[in-house]
């Protein structure tokens, strides 16, 4: 008889390790599109995320009181992952990555090179080109990509620290549209696989983690929720739930019912109606 008291997921799971750095939370959240900074800060706290993404942009010189994100987030408390969002060429993405590193926080980058404005789907060839250069410059590259197994393998070969296939298009909230390919990517890669973009609500996050991936990155699902702080807590729980369900291993599916209570020890059945098949709930 086990006397193990399960106090937290930490006892049942290993930390997420990317480029030698450990994270207890498998949820990474963005910092964009919140209605205000206070909501953002509270949502990040409720999400339990230890890593958050940020973008690099021109300072608005007409409104110098407009503060950068570092006025609201303490980089000693949350690990900041700069992105190259909005870049449509390898060259631009590399420029943004280098500017981000010059800020002096770390040498990580969430590399994204977008190929199309309508879908915001990644330009995988340009992403690969930028990844190779940035890896050679000692960046820790976490590459946003399609749920394409071959692209994921190439990005791993290029030296990316993590590969981040999408669940569905950025900001769409459509959830995980291609669980089979995401599972296959996870099965084939050695580096962590983080599903990035497209998660809409807690069940999406849970189902995504149940595929066995190492983590999920989301932004809009929190920022555009009716109550971002509650949704952040829901996502926190959903990520843990999905992760533990994956580790536990689900029961097999059957197309017929199997009783949960013993069929042995039942009283004599009334003659009125003999069941066609023995058993019951």
């Amino acid at each position: 008889m086990s006397t193990l008291a399960i106090e937290s997921t930490r006892q049942l799971d290993e930390p997420l390790v990317i480029a030698g750095r450990s994270f207890r939370s498998r949820l990474i959240v963005g910092t964009g599109k919140y209605r205000d900074n206070d909501t953002m800060v509270r949502a990040i706290e409720a999400s339990g995320a230890e890593m958050v993404t940020v973008a690099v942009r021109r300072i608005d010189l007409d409104r110098t009181k407009e503060e950068g994100i570092l006025h609201h987030l303490d980089p000693s408390k949350v690990f900041l992952l700069p992105n190259t969002a909005g870049c449509y060429t390898a060259e631009d993405a590399m420029r943004y990555a280098r500017l981000a590193r010059a800020a002096g926080l770390n040498d990580w980058v969430k590399l994204e090179v977008i190929g199309d404005q309508r879908t915001l789907l990644p330009d995988v060839a340009a992403t690969l080109e930028a990844a190779r250069v940035l890896v050679a410059e000692d960046f820790k590259v976490l590459a946003y990509t399609n749920e394409d197994v071959i692209a994921a393998l190439r990005l791993e070969d290029a030296g990316c620290a993590a590969v981040m296939p999408l669940a569905s298009p950025i900001g769409s909230g459509l959830g995980l549209v291609n669980p089979y390919y995401v599972r296959e990517i996870k099965a084939r890669l050695e580096v962590p696989v983080i599903v990035d973009a497209g998660v809409g609500t807690a069940s999406d996050a849970c189902v995504t983690m149940e595929q066995g991936v190492d983590g999920v990155l989301m932004n809009t699902a929190l920022a555009e929720a009716g109550d971002p702080v509650r949704m952040a807590r829901a996502m926190n729980l959903a990520i843990e739930a999905g992760r533990l369900a994956y580790l536990a291993g689900r029961m097999s599916r059957r197309e017929i019912a199997v009783p949960s209570s013993p069929s042995k020890g039942m009283l004599d059945r009334s003659a009125a109606r003999e069941p066609e098949a023995r058993g019951g709930a």
């Binding site: 910092t31 940020v54 021109r58 300072i59």
Partner: peptide, 28 residues
């Protein structure tokens, strides 16, 4: 060219220079 912080003091701004001043903002 990215200008290291340690060089801000010693780097003059000249006519025709192109300067970009950036920082971190919210993003996904």
């Amino acid at each position: 060219e990215i200008l290291e912080r340690s060089r801000y003091d010693a780097t003059p701004v000249r006519a025709g220079d192109v300067l970009e001043l950036v920082h971190f903002v919210g993003g996904g």
